[in-house]
């Protein structure tokens, strides 16, 4: 059969695949997951960029029938699309935790997630523990972190400190983490990161009706939030998934109807129809996971939880 090439970029690897012309998004996505040995597939998606806008490959539609860049090979990024409510309870496999760790670390370093200088230093110390193992002053000589990107540029510029001084600060924390295995260090990183206000939120600029108030809409694991344009930290308004009856769009307009019929219906405009489609897609996916968490675990999840527990105990013994 005729094929086309795709390049899939994960947080730490690049892979090339030959795909059959008739393949749906799901065929490619499943192949990537199998190649990675990833079973917690529901958090992830294949992202591409078209005309400067980020979009996710639809699983149920043929790959070549989607509005993807016509290049050879076609490039996709394999990324977390949805985030858990609690990393320590929901991320079971080590590979899942590792991919989340790498993605969240990048978001913090790229300043997509704001993090205070104190917390960035603590996070950096866990990243160093994950990479280098236990601190050994005989081996980890001054300058050993010189090649690592550990702190956001904003933090580095904020203080008059030399690279050496930052290294000392991070190393002081790093030395405290002795005995923590790589997977534990990464999980500790995520446990701190998940409490940051901007963690796991997808922001979209929106306008409200005639007065053209510029706002931001945020979609995350818990619900939909509305922010002032200059404050991404604390929403002015929040709709938890369990308090929403219906979400609908027509062209650029999007409507959120609360469950409480007396409560005000929230209407706004996004920049493009395409953005509304993406917002609804994210709402459906997040709501689906929200419901799944509140149901009894499937047999597959129960097995994975048992396996993860065994694996952890075995590792602890080894360590």
């Amino acid at each position: 059969p005729k094929t086309f090439k795709v390049k899939v970029i994960t947080m730490d690897a690049e892979m090339e695949f030959s795909c059959e012309m008739k393949w749906k998004g799901k065929d490619l996505f499943d192949l990537v997951c199998r190649t990675l040995g990833l079973r917690e597939t529901w958090f992830f998606g294949l992202q591409y960029t078209i005309k400067g806008v980020r979009a996710w490959l639809k699983l149920e539609k043929k790959v070549l029938e989607q509005e993807i860049p016509k290049e050879d090979p076609i490039k996709f990024c394999f990324l977390a699309k949805f985030y858990p409510e609690k990393v320590e309870e929901e991320l079971l496999q080590e590979i899942t935790q590792h991919l989340f760790f790498l993605q969240v670390k990048k978001q913090i370093l790229d300043e997509e997630i704001y993090c205070s200088p104190e917390v960035t230093v603590l996070l950096a110390s866990y990243a160093v523990q994950a990479k280098y193992g236990d601190y050994d002053p005989n081996f980890h000589k001054p300058g050993f972190l010189a090649q690592d990107e550990l702190l956001p540029q904003r933090v580095l510029k904020q203080y008059q400190m030399t690279v050496h001084m930052w290294e000392e600060k991070i190393t002081a924390w790093y030395a405290e983490h002795r005995g923590i295995a790589r997977d534990e260090a990464e999980m500790n990183y995520l446990k701190i990161a998940q409490d940051l206000a901007m963690y796991g939120v997808n922001y979209f600029p929106i306008e409200q009706n005639k007065n053209h108030t510029d706002l931001l809409l945020g979609v995350d694991a818990k619900g939909i939030h509305v922010y002032s344009i200059n404050n991404r930290f604390s929403p002015n308004k929040s709709f938890e998934w369990s308090a929403i009856r219906n979400i609908s769009y027509s062209e650029k307009e999007l409507t959120i109807k609360p469950l409480d019929k007396k409560a005000e219906v929230f209407k706004f405009f996004s920049s493009q129809l395409k953005v509304n489609k993406l917002i609804l897609q994210l709402c459906i996916g997040n709501h689906d996971l929200f419901m799944k968490r509140r149901r009894v675990d499937s047999i597959e999840i129960q097995q994975m939880k048992a396996q993860a527990k065994e694996e952890k105990a075995r590792k602890k013994m080894e360590h």
């Binding site: 998934w241 929403i244 219906n246 979400i247 609908s248 469950l259 419901m291």
Partner: peptide, 22 residues
């Protein structure tokens, strides 16, 4: 519970989604 009426319209009922999964 997800309905696309035309290419420019879409609707998702969270209530129906919840009922169908119970």
């Amino acid at each position: 519970y997800f309905a696309r009426k035309a290419n420019h319209k879409g609707s998702y009922s969270l209530v129906d989604a919840l009922k169908s999964k119970v």
